[in-house]
């Protein structure tokens, strides 16, 4: 197993399920920082997670307190971003009935696409990038990815809908890996962070 001990991963902490991602990242062996008050901290990170929450709330607070530019700069520097649920909505280029926030991911999404809370569900997903063992997808008032452009790789599908994607250094899922004990998606993300860090460090890593 890879050693993630040198990685410093931020979790955007404007609102939502921050603590769960912090725990997942720590369980993988990397250090986790909740980024709540100071957007400038984002510069020092090896990667950033945009958690689940209410995308309208996070979007409003993110614009208001100057997080947008810092997140876009992080992505432009080749560092990885990982969005879950609302995080996916914030990353998407097109959001039905709403202005996009960042937008960094060439997908269209529809919010609450599976229905209201009573339709929220768990289902096993087959995700090739993670191996043969199914991954428990927890979908809570989840968005659906309705279309993707050519440069987007599809990571996960559920009943013919796209629920997980990757485009270069950006990973996004409609479901919540942080609500399970399965760390494979977080490790997958940390691996990108490790590679991105190696490519930024010219000589052998310390």
């Amino acid at each position: 197993m890879k050693d993630f001990g040198n990685l410093k991963i931020g979790i955007l902490a404007l609102q939502g399920a921050v603590a769960e991602h912090v725990q997942s990242v720590q369980k993988c062996g990397a250090s986790a920082v909740a980024v709540r008050r100071e957007p400038a901290i984002i510069k020092e990170l090896d990667g950033l997670i945009l958690p689940g929450g209410e995308s309208t709330t996070i979007g409003r607070l993110g614009s208001l307190y100057g997080f947008r530019e810092e997140i876009r700069n992080l992505a432009a520097g080749g560092k990885p971003l990982f969005g879950t649920c609302a995080g996916l909505v914030l990353l998407a280029e097109e959001v039905e009935g709403q202005d996009p926030l960042l937008p960094l991911l060439s997908v269209s999404v529809k919010r609450n696409a599976y229905g209201r809370q009573r339709e929220s569900f768990e289902a096993d997903l087959e995700i090739e990038a993670l191996g043969s063992e199914p991954f428990c997808g927890v979908f809570i008032r989840a968005p659906r990815i309705t279309s993707v452009s050519r440069e987007v790789e599809i990571l996960a599908e559920f009943e013919n809908t796209i629920v997980g994607v990757r485009q270069g250094n950006i990973i996004a899922t409609a479901f919540h890996p942080e609500l399970t004990d399965d760390l494979r998606i977080h490790r997958y993300f940390l691996l990108q962070a490790l590679e991105s860090r190696a490519s930024r460090t010219p000589s052998t890593a310390s």
Binding site: A17, A123, I140
Partner: peptide, 21 residues
């Protein structure tokens, strides 16, 4: 594929998404 609605995890998870709000 089994789809489970109304599990305690999705009920509790819904509230977790509201934190800080």
């Amino acid at each position: 594929m089994a789809v489970n609605k109304g599990t305690f995890r999705v009920k509790k998870g819904m509230a977790e998404m509201q934190k800080g709000g």
